[in-house]
Design a protein around this nucleic acid. Structure first.
Lengths: 205, 205
DNA sequence: TTTAGATTCTAATTGATGTTAGATTGAGTA
DNA sequence: TACTCAATCTAACATCAATTAGAATCTAAA
């Protein structure tokens, strides 16, 4: 058996990437247990056994897909937020964060759907390995709302915790209907930000 | 082979229900391909083969779980809405609908998690079979917002379609974090309704 | 008590999957 | 040219899942 150390050969890393992409695609469509190494391999014209040159096991491969999916989102959100002016307002920040998250999960939907759909379906070891990355990303949002509350721009009575979870839900759910909606990512982001900031209700008819 | 016709015997229908419940539990935790008939059977002290007396195939069993999950939600939402006064306001209606949906998916989470997590992961035949029920339920929400718009209580610029999907996302996502949150279903419902009605932003600091 | 029908079990069968070891290929290098 | 090593393939192995046929058991009515 070949022991795998970090391999930096050109060809190897290209193939690795091909495998990861193919795995993400399968994983997003068929779930962990419905994703077969044979299918992954076939979709990039390889044999199932050959995958073991690049990954030690199915679990290891899946783990890397899940990790990458979270990092991808985090990176894009960071980027979108950094594009803002020096002293962005809370609505600006929220809009940018939502836009980043949606861009990530809708444009790279194979990875994020793989992550979302298999949350709690993969073996625990795989699940736990991605937790640190998830926590790091979650903290970004926690901080966003904590700062906003300090600044007094959150309406009294709004639970920061439930607010964050509601926004997460709305965004992540978009992976399910986005393709059929015809709307652009930017439109959806704008709409969701506006909704969470101002609500849908017109008072005093 | 025994051909199954609709069987109304007492014992049979009780066992059927046991099987469905067990299947929903497994399905919600391990996904379609990770759910094994053997496990379902064992969890209710039966043999895998015996399941075939009640269901023609794994697909047929799964299909019934998914159908039931949607019907369950629809029924409870209808009930909550009917409890309202003769002429409920839009906020009242929305609150009741959200409460009903959350009660359904959080109290009977095995069925609804089974449905949500396996959306697009089950074989297409199974998926399609549950579509009519899903459509019927979706129409309830469509009508809710259409009526509200006619009544002029929706803020201009709000996209009814995206609004509905955002609310769905927030609610359904709650299945993931509910158990760890410590919040009650009623609190979450109240909080989400308030959020979607009025937003989180306090204007004019 | 007998018996027919309903329900469950038992023991295969068939097919597919993750994994591995060893053979094979192919590109660069001494 | 020979050699090395990365990369891939091939052909197995062991396991396990869905399904089935028929035997066994249980239940309620005659």
């Amino acid at each position: 058996m070949t022991i795998k150390v970090t391999n930096t050969t050109k060809k190897s890393s290209v193939t690795r990437q091909l495998i990861l992409d193919a795995a993400a695609k399968k994983l997003s469509r068929h779930g962990y247990h419905g994703t077969y190494l044979k299918d992954i391999a076939e979709s990039i014209n390889m044999q199932a056994g050959s995958l073991y040159y690049h990954f030690n096991s199915k679990e290891a491969l899946m783990q890397e897909v899940l990790n990458k999916s979270v990092q991808l989102i985090h990176d894009i959100v960071d980027y979108e937020v950094e594009q803002l002016s020096e002293t962005p307002t809370f609505p600006d920040l929220l809009r940018a964060a939502i836009r980043g998250h949606l861009i990530a999960i809708l444009r790279h939907s194979d990875y994020t759907l793989a992550s979302i759909r298999n949350y709690g379906q993969v073996p625990e070891a795989v699940h736990n390995a991605a937790q640190p990355d998830r926590d790091a990303y979650e903290n970004f949002w926690r901080n966003l709302f904590e700062q906003a509350e300090k600044d007094g721009v959150i309406r009294t009575g709004v639970d920061k915790h439930l607010l964050r979870l509601a926004i997460f839900g709305s965004m992540n759910w978009a992976t399910i209907w986005y393709v059929d909606s015809g709307a652009s990512v930017e439109e959806i982001a704008e709409s969701q930000a506006d909704l969470f900031l101002n609500g849908c209700y017109r008072k005093g008819v």
